[in-house]
Design a protein around this nucleic acid. Structure first.
Length: 415
RNA sequence: GUGGGCGUAGCUCAAUUGGCAGAGCGCUGGACUGUGGCUCCAGUGGCUGUGGGUUCAAGUCCCAUCGCCCACCCCA
């Protein structure tokens, strides 16, 4: 039997309900803040991701689905959503139309990783990108949007972590100090961190090895190396969060895996997620637009992992939904008449379900009961003769006979 | 890419030192001829992930392979 490829999964009807709830909530909240949806292709030129995410990152080095098309072009299934939105923003000359733009997106992303809890090769994100503003209060707003989504979905046990990664002026100084400190303590670091020290020293900061964490804690903090501009920016962000009563934690060792981030970075962490506990994350990227060939326009955004949020939401029950009305025909004649009656009901927006099966009344009632029907319509020979139909209340067991011509009016009461 | 755990019915899981592949749930029908749920009864269910090997005999032992889960790594 052919199965879905490793790291991919089917989202079955019972799960789709949760997905739609997330998509609807997020979409409505984005609209509330003036974001508009943008849809970009699922694959892009490989160079877009190499230039934006960074050549030395794990994503670009070993996690991308890259292939050549029949014309010899190198293409890559998008591993994240920010770079494509920036590309579209520039390609369609948005900077010349308006220096201020808010976008949101939703869709599948692809990374070649070993699957585990909360991690898939095809996964889905909703996210936003803002271009133009460099005011720290927009950072606060971006965090507030996520906070609102989680609140609306009734998610608790969330932790918000924030940090500043500085800018091109102050980050090099910190980086130098960090490398110096790590080199001095090289023998206390785990093997992977000794390798990271050469390639991507900032990554040592979020190693889970206790020995490495100890070395990191003894070392320099980025927050002590920020330039005046970055320090002030950070202060305004934390002040803003406090004014909105959004609880947060400054984690001076929080880093991100994509090279383009500057200044504010943040993560929403949930305890029920296992090792992959980040449900939503993002940050400011003041140089990315320029690095991709555009003007000097700052930006900020976040991405939220839908699978991970579903994992959290499934710990709780789903809200009750309206129960459908089932049509139970007894015999061919009843089906012939029933199809007309059902269409008329649907004309008035009344939902009616017929299984399409020819079966005994007992089997059909059992079926309707199993699916949670509140009410069923039974049509048999005697009813057809009198141009009537029987409406049965499944909870009470009560039945009433209704003339075809009165049915619509009668049911309107329930729907 | 690395490590650990696991693959038996649609689902959850049994099967003694290698010895007839089972149960519960589900599904279908009946008891109740046009009335569901509860109960009782019957039926339906399988290339034991796949391919080799050892053996009189393999779900069980060995090798390979694929897949799933968890973790490392990395990240949403």
């Amino acid at each position: 039997m052919i199965k879905a490829p490793t790291g991919t999964r089917d989202i079955l009807p019972e799960d789709v309900k949760t997905w739609q709830r997330i998509e609807k909530t997020a979409g409505e909240i984005f609209t509330l803040y003036g974001y508009e949806e943008i849809r970009t292709p699922i694959f892009e030129s490989t160079s877009l991701f190499q230039r934006s995410i960074g050549e030395a990152t794990d994503i670009v080095e070993k996690e991308m689905y890259t292939f050549k098309d029949k014309g010899g072009r190198s293409l890559t299934l998008r591993p994240e959503g920010t770079a494509p939105v920036v590309r579209a923003y520039l390609e369609h000359q948005f900077p010349q139309r308006d220096q201020f733009q808010k976008f949101y997106y939703i869709g599948p992303m692809f990374r070649y990783e070993r699957p585990q809890k909360g991690r898939f090769r095809q996964f889905h994100q909703v996210g936003i990108e803002v271009f133009g503003p460099n005011h720290p209060m927009i950072d606060v707003e971006v965090i507030a949007i996520q906070w609102r989504i989680f609140k609306e979905l009734d998610v608790s046990d969330l932790k918000v972590k924030i940090n500043s990664l500085g800018c091109e002026k102050c980050r090099p100084g910190y980086r130098k100090a960090l490398i110096e400190h790590l080199k001095k303590n090289r023998e206390r670091l785990c093997e992977t961190c000794q390798r990271r020290l050469e390639r991507n020293p900032l990554r040592v900061l979020d190693c889970k090895n206790p020995g490495c964490q100890q070395v990191v804690r003894e070392g320099p903090k980025i927050t002590d190396y920020l330039c005046n501009d970055c320090r002030e920016h950070m202060k305004k962000v934390t002040d803003g969060l406090e004014s909105l009563k959004i609880p947060y934690e400054v984690d001076p060792f929080l880093v991100r895996g994509l090279d383009y981030y500057t200044k504010t970075v943040f993560e929403f962490i949930h305890t029920a997620l296992g090792a992959q506990n980040t449900v939503s994350a993002g940050g400011r990227y003041d140089n990315l637009v320029e690095e991709l060939g555009g003007p000097e326009i700052p930006g900020i955004g976040f991405a939220l992992g839908i699978e991970r949020l579903v994992l959290i939401l499934n710990e709780k029950g789903l809200p009750e939904e309206k129960k459908p009305l089932y049509f139970i025909p007894l015999g061919e004649e009843a089906i012939k008449e029933g199809i007309k009656i059902m269409e008329e009901l649907r004309d008035s927006g009344i939902p009616v379900i017929w299984t399409g099966k020819v079966a005994s009344i007992k089997a059909q009632l059992r079926q309707a009961n199993k699916r949670g029907a509140d009410r069923v319509l039974i049509l048999g020979e005697s009813e057809i003769e009198n141009r009537e139909i029987k409406l049965k209340d499944m909870k009470e067991g009560r039945e009433e006979v209704i003339k075809w011509k009165d049915l619509k009016e009668h049911l309107r009461y329930y729907f």
